[in-house]
């Protein structure tokens, strides 16, 4: 079973709320967040970590020890000492998403806010066939984002991310192969204006939930 949770990141949390939520993070992580120049990114970083707590707890029954979070040679984060467990976080303007699962290898998730693109700028990331498909469309935007989030989810599930050549991964078929590994992909509906995909060895059982922050909003004085 894969647990997947997402949170909206459209409004800025109050400073108090932000500080309160930050308290569950190790101090180094809090310091890292302060390096983000825009509140949107800082808050996305915080929400990503909180969603990771949430999904890991869903899977394991207990939250992870955030202080064991490390990154591998491809800068992919993982929890040291928990080789059976994998999680993956993605964020885009206004939305943060995290997926976690145990005992099924690595998984990848990618979400993008659909916006204007110039297809030519992405010539290098698609196979010939993919690019032909996209450039033949009267409006390629929606398809571009669906295809791209498929691709990035698979690259993240593989673990090597951008160290892979995206143009070498054919994302048109149902199941997508990368160097002999085969990934199933599932499209996620996270609301209008977003494209999102989840990739893993098996995506049949996915529990999707929205988490709202602050968890228990206090009533505001009129």
């Amino acid at each position: 079973m894969i647990s997947l949770a997402y949170a909206r990141n459209e409004e800025r949390l109050s400073e108090k709320e932000y500080e309160r939520l930050c308290r569950s993070l190790p101090p180094e992580m809090r310091d890292d967040l302060r390096r983000y120049r825009r509140w949107q990114d800082r808050q996305a970083g915080l929400l990503g970590k909180l969603l990771m707590n949430y999904t890991v707890r869903e899977v394991m029954g207990e939250p992870p020890d955030q202080s064991t979070l490390v990154t591998d040679a491809y800068r992919r984060p993982f929890l040291a000492g928990r080789p059976d467990l994998d999680f993956n976080i993605s964020h885009t303007a206004g939305l943060v998403v995290c997926a976690a699962a145990a005992g099924m290898g690595r998984l990848g998730v990618d979400v993008e806010r659909v916006g204007e693109i110039q297809l030519a700028e992405f010539r290098r990331v698609f196979t010939e066939e993919e690019y032909a498909l996209l450039s033949g469309l009267p409006d390629a935007t929606a398809t571009f984002f669906r295809l791209w989030t498929r691709k990035e989810a698979v690259m993240k599930a593989d673990g090597r991310g951008f160290s892979l050549d995206p143009a070498g991964i054919d994302c048109l078929p149902d199941r997508i192969g990368v160097d002999g590994n085969c990934y199933a992909v599932r499209e996620l509906d996270l609301g209008a204006g977003y494209a999102a995909h989840l990739a893993a060895s098996d995506v049949d059982e996915v529990v999707v939930g929205e988490v709202r922050f602050p968890r228990h909003p206090r009533p505001r004085p009129e």
Binding site: R35, A120, E121, F122, R124, F162, S163, D165
Partner: peptide, 27 residues
């Protein structure tokens, strides 16, 4: 830290390639 995303990174290297002819991995 300045709000850069993977798509922005792809665009960056596409534009860089157009300007310099160098093809560099976003990684």
């Amino acid at each position: 830290h300045c709000g850069g995303t993977s798509l922005a990174a792809l665009r960056l290297f596409a534009r860089l390639e157009r300007a310099t002819g160098k093809n560099i991995s976003p990684a």
